[in-house]
Design a protein around this nucleic acid. Structure first.
Lengths: 235, 235
DNA sequence: ACCTGAACACCGTTCAAGT
DNA sequence: ACCTGAACACCGTTCAAGT
């Protein structure tokens, strides 16, 4: 996708006299979204500012606003970009239950690779990216034989669960960025739990060991399976 | 809770010569949190700024920072304040399944009354308010007879679902604030769905009627029941 | 100990002016 | 049509100075 096009252009300008030919790397909505994703991946949500963007794209802020209405739209576009790949990646031939797990896993992995996507998904629920996931889940529920009346609620339950984890995971990533690593972060959470009165918080004390060595992805899929089991029960 | 204490003080100052007695309404963390909640309820998340706060409290920004570390801590405190009441309100005597529904309903109603709480819950997952909900859910799962090994995953699934809805609902409220009302908002969502290709989005087209007249609270509880049914199935 | 309020270092967004 | 970049109206936060 021509990530180095800016450098190429600058080299060309330095070695050749400028020509009137159309620059192939002219500013475009696509290039802006791409640059935004690079900033978000490298330095997190807080680092994405129009100033950072115009520096990276070597342009003025007004130029960015020519292609993108505002920051909300830009964030929605970056999220759509990442999620679109997930949903279309799910192979159409799979068995419905496996397909649902694959969709959920795909969203999980996308958030794992780009934590800022989690924050964005849970903040803007009716954006296109979320619709894509909702549609994909709903189709598979149909294939699974869930009666039409119940499909809306079931898809909604799965979607809310996925979005809930999305937000949680994104927030976790935000905190871990400040700490050293994941296990140190979990240890500090466990420490805080340990300071709570065991008489008032018996459950938290009980599950602290599980907190410390649980696998996020596995726990996420366990939740999906739980909801699928519930769907089986009402079917 | 003395909501009018500022006015009382001003009247007192106007009618009596100042006395050296300690003002009962001196600035305190509690009063700041209370004022913040009033601003959030009246005008939404975007309206809560330190400038709005210092105007309402008739003080300087530094005074607020003396009692509260920063804006994140203030937001966490407001959320804790609202959620604490929900969790302690759940009557201890209820049957576990009903208690879980009551906890979930309580969180739902709190978010319904204070949409900004939803945004905050889904953004800061390990804050105290969320721990309280997690603890309450976990305790009831124990009472329900869920084996210890599975309790962590089950509580996690319920919590993620609740937090997912929290974020979604908060975002919806943010959008509805700009539109006229809820049904106009849903109609505009349905309109957008209608523009999508029915061949690619059959599910969305199918459930549009249900979108238009669904009850948020009822749908939320249907999801809780679905997860509870799944928990029954694995028990 | 607690409060004041000016100042700092940022934001997102706009817009007259250029090509 | 597309881009520039200064300017505007905000933020959260700090801090010397007051009581």
């Amino acid at each position: 996708m021509e990530r180095r096009s800016k450098c190429v252009k600058m080299l060309a300008m330095a070695t050749r006299p400028q020509r009137s030919e159309r620059r192939t790397d002219a500013l475009s909505r696509e290039r802006i979204v791409e640059a935004a994703i690079e900033i978000l991946d490298a330095d997190g949500e807080a680092a994405l500012t129009f100033r950072a963007l115009r520096t990276r794209l070597a342009t003025g802020s007004g130029a960015i606003y020519w292609h993108v209405a505002n920051k909300d739209e830009l964030l929605a576009a970056t999220t759509d970009d990442v999620i679109a790949r997930v949903v279309t990646d799910v192979s159409a031939g799979a068995e419905p239950r496996e397909a649902i797990r694959a969709i959920a896993s795909g969203v999980f992995d996308a958030i794992d690779a780009h934590p800022w996507v989690g924050g964005q998904l849970s903040r803007e629920p009716w954006q296109f990216a979320v619709l894509q996931v909702f549609e994909a889940l709903g189709q598979q529920l149909g294939a699974l034989g869930v009666p039409e009346r119940a499909r809306f609620d079931c898809a909604s339950a799965l979607l809310n669960y996925v979005l809930g984890l999305a937000g949680q995971y994104a927030a976790g990533a935000r905190l871990i960025a400040r700490e050293t690593d994941r296990s140190a972060f979990l240890a500090s959470v466990a420490e805080r739990w340990a300071t709570l009165d065991p008489a008032e918080h018996p459950f938290l004390h009980q599950v602290t060991p599980q907190l410390l060595d649980h696998d996020d992805r596995q726990q996420f899929l366990a939740g999906i399976d739980l909801i699928l089991a519930g769907i089986d029960a009402i079917r």
